[in-house]
Amino acid sequence: MKKVEPLNPEAFATYVPLLQAYPFKPYAHYGRRVGEEALQQLFLARVQASIKSSAHSALWVPGSDGAQGLAVWTPLAWDSQQLGVGAGRLEYLIASGDYKNQYATKEVLLRAVLKTCADQGIQHFTARVHASDLSTVHLLEQYGFITVDGILTFSLDIMDVHWPSPPAGLEIRLSRPEDIEPIKAIARSSYVCGRFHSDPCIPKTVADELHAAWLENSCLGKVADAVVVAAENSRILGYVTCKIDRQTAEYFGLTIGTIVLVATAADARGRGVARAITYGALNWFRDQGVQIVEVGTQLRNIPASRLYESCGFRLVASHLSLRKWIGVSDLQ
């Protein structure tokens, strides 16, 4: 009988072999470029930081030769505020062995996680899982999680690439305080494919306002390092939010940035605005010393995938976003 215990941050060395063997580490698609050792060190640092943080909760399943599995999750204060219910995210669900053994260990962990989440007041519980992590995907489905999103991740090495100037009359620049309200207005009407809009338990108005608040926080520098906008005659036509992962420079010897959110005003689409802002964001990243830029888009957002491919990005990874309303039926 597998036993679940609270994870002890001071015994981190016990969990290291399990974590080192985990195949779905962040940035694993750069393994040939940066090396497996660098991937492991970054991953270990992130997991260790998570389990030491009071904002996270963690459990593990001990075995005769170390850890058989572990789970880490986080209550999400901002999401809870936006959704009006307790929200949380499963950060890691990892187990050793073949598919059957992984599934059994993860099942014991997931039961304990869901029970603890209910005790913590978490109802809206999400997970983003690598598309090849089949034991986790199948287990979450079995326990009432539904798929609300599929994410394709594209990557571009920007060091030796040059992009054309924006169309005449289109100004590409960083956002200003007076841009926040026009940006929020675009955000309210742009994200029909995302996980919040795809969730049958979240009203469209709530999802719209969530994205507006997300963009305001991005412009204020709370969740983004920069917001690049396209303006025409002082009117904001679109934006790109940018985030730099500074840890990658320390562990990989190269810096990776991410395009997080992109949107264009409805009446400005089809004019090359999204492409021009994307190029502007790539220029900003390069000015910050970033070597690689990633961008994710929804599996069903075909126009966005075509845009990124035409800008030189290539597909490197895919993930699924799943969600469970703990104690609440999706049909209610």
Rank of each mutant, 00 (worst) to 15 (best):
P23N: 06
D199F: 05
A131K: 09
I146R: 14
P200C: 01
L174C: 08
I151D: 14
S80Q: 10
P203E: 04
D65E: 15
Y279G: 06
G272V: 04
E181T: 06
L134Q: 15
S96H: 06
A11K: 12
L114G: 08
L315H: 04
V223T: 09
R269G: 07
I326R: 02
G327K: 04
V295G: 01
E216C: 06
G296A: 11
I244E: 03
E209P: 03
I94N: 01
A127S: 11
K25G: 13
E141D: 10
I326K: 02
H124R: 12
L322K: 15
P26F: 00
S321P: 05
S54M: 10
W78D: 05
F252C: 01
V61F: 05
C311R: 01
L320E: 12
G272R: 03
R176S: 14
D65T: 15
L322R: 07
L140I: 01
Y15N: 02
L134S: 14
L39Y: 02
L152I: 11
Y30N: 11
F125C: 04
L70Q: 01
A104C: 12
W163E: 08
T126G: 13
Q102M: 09
S198Q: 05
T255F: 10
E141F: 10
P17I: 04
A212H: 04
N301C: 00
H138D: 13
L152K: 13
P6N: 11
I292K: 05
I183P: 03
L139H: 03
F24P: 00
S132Y: 07
H138K: 10
W325E: 14
S80L: 12
A21Q: 09
S189G: 08
I256W: 08
S135T: 03
G86V: 01
R33P: 06
P75W: 04
R188G: 15
A268G: 00
C117K: 04
R195G: 08
S175F: 07
I158L: 11
A38V: 00
L18Q: 00
Q40D: 10
H319G: 14
F285V: 00
A230P: 02
V72C: 04
G66W: 09
V223L: 07
L7S: 02
N8V: 06
K2W: 02
T126A: 14
F154L: 14
D179L: 08
S198F: 03
Y99I: 06
H130F: 00
Y308N: 07
L174E: 15
I302W: 11
N101S: 15
V47K: 02
W60P: 02
Y92D: 15
H124Y: 15
D245L: 10
T14D: 00
S318Y: 13
T248R: 05
S190I: 05
Y143S: 06
R176C: 14
I302C: 07
L315A: 05
Y251M: 01
G97I: 09
R195D: 10
L322P: 01
